[in-house]
Design a protein around this nucleic acid. Sequence first.
RNA 1: UCCCCGAUAGCUCAAUCGGUAGAGCGGCGGACUGUUAAUCCGUAGGUUGUAGGUUCGAGCCCUACUCGGGGAGCCA
Length: 474
Amino acid sequence: MYRRIADLLKNASPGDAAEIRGWVRTRRDSKGGFSFVEVNDGSCFASLQAVVPADVPGYEQSIKDVTTGSSVAISGKLVDSPGKGQRLELQADALRLLGTADADAYPLQKKRHSFEFLREIAHLRTRTNTFGAVFRVRNRVSYAIHEFFQQRGFLYVHSPIITTSDCEGAGAMFRVTASRESRDESREQDSPSMTSLNLLPSTLDPAEFFGRPAYLTVSGQLEGEIFACSLGPCYTFGPTFRAENSNTTRHLAEFWMIEPEMPFFELIDNMALAEEFIRHLCRTVLEDCQEDLAFFADRIDKEAITTLRMIAENDFLRVTYTEAVEVLTQSGMTFDYQVEWGRDLQSEHERYLTEQHFQRPVILYDYPRTIKPFYMRVNDDGKTVRAMDVLVPRVGEIIGGSQREERLDVLESRMREQDLDPAHYWWYCELRKYGTVPHSGFGLGLERLMLLITGMQNIRDVIPFPRTPKSAEF
RNA sequence: UCCCCGAUAGCUCAAUCGGUAGAGCGGCGGACUGUUAAUCCGUAGGUUGUAGGUUCGAGCCCUACUCGGGGAGCCA
């Protein structure tokens, strides 16, 4: 009976018959008349060693082609392993070679490869220890995200991927158009500039598929607010796009974001949820991904497990922007960028706070209104808004959120303050016009969370097929 | 987009002052072995990222471009 290796290692006993199917990691021949074939099927970190005697059906005609990367089905009986390195092994009674992998040409060798090289063979890198572990953890984290919100009665909202609104001006957007062939060629025209977003219905353009310029979403927040202000606490979890020409280890053109939005939540509740959320995810991974985590701690980042425990076990600090500025100016540190109230904090400042000064996750809140978007609620002091950023060691900003401005007059004046026309956001404003309520939300970048959890250095290595400037091969 | 660094065998890298290309790993052949990053012996493998320039001669110096890496900005 075909069973996956994770199942066998967890549930099977010596004496059980089983067939395994997977990809060969290594083969070692013994002159004793048998071969060791190490098979990995991706179900768990561990491979299973099959001992294949030379007189077994299939051995003679195919053993030479059982090379690293080839695919096999091996059936036999599980036995206690006399060798070191594994508890159980499969004593084979039949070997089937499913697909060969020319050893001379197969790019993955039984040696360490650089992540840069593996990125060039993204169709094969999932067969390595590192990427197997990364994507099993990513899967568990994704599931835990749904668990966390579903257990709390949050509604999962599928916010649109194609949008005609420019939320918060969160950065350059990708244009969405019908392909040239399917467009009415009589209406060729230049692309509208970025400033002509959010055209009113009266300016419908028949040459545009949607009647107006359309883009890939940069955030599901505005749509999330609609659902929060009707169906209650909700969250989105889907792909998000930024056309920024960012070339860093922390940015992608396509990434996955989780954006919860809660009615009747003030900033303090928002911060509490964000903290509970992150810590829940860390605890889940510590509990359920021990084998993969052990690998990260061994080969990727010595502190991988320590970091997760530190986050799971310690309260996040809450520090106002103003207090943070004081800490930084009194730190005696020399920064490349000067710290001054009213200016945004730079990466170096955030990292100093979370890595050196506080040495744990920190939630900064109450930022100057001038450096934050229009939808954040203005505090009574008139100078700050109810924004929060969650900063964690090594990664920096992992969550950005706020209490939303629920007062229509204040919202509209904030829009004008930032040269936005309230008419373009008419439906967003109507949420305040009809039955407005205090509400809050935040955004978490899944890949940044993955960096934190795995200890991986480059965000391109924690998403299956990274999209970055000049790169979208797979 | 800006700053810095890099591109040489399948992979990771070396090559002195500008003087005719090397190693380890991997592959292949063999030896040995309840092996497991196996070990030992042998062997093949190169338009030095692309285009131009300087020079008697360029992997090495110069220019441009392409791609990759690190940092910054933008942000999640």
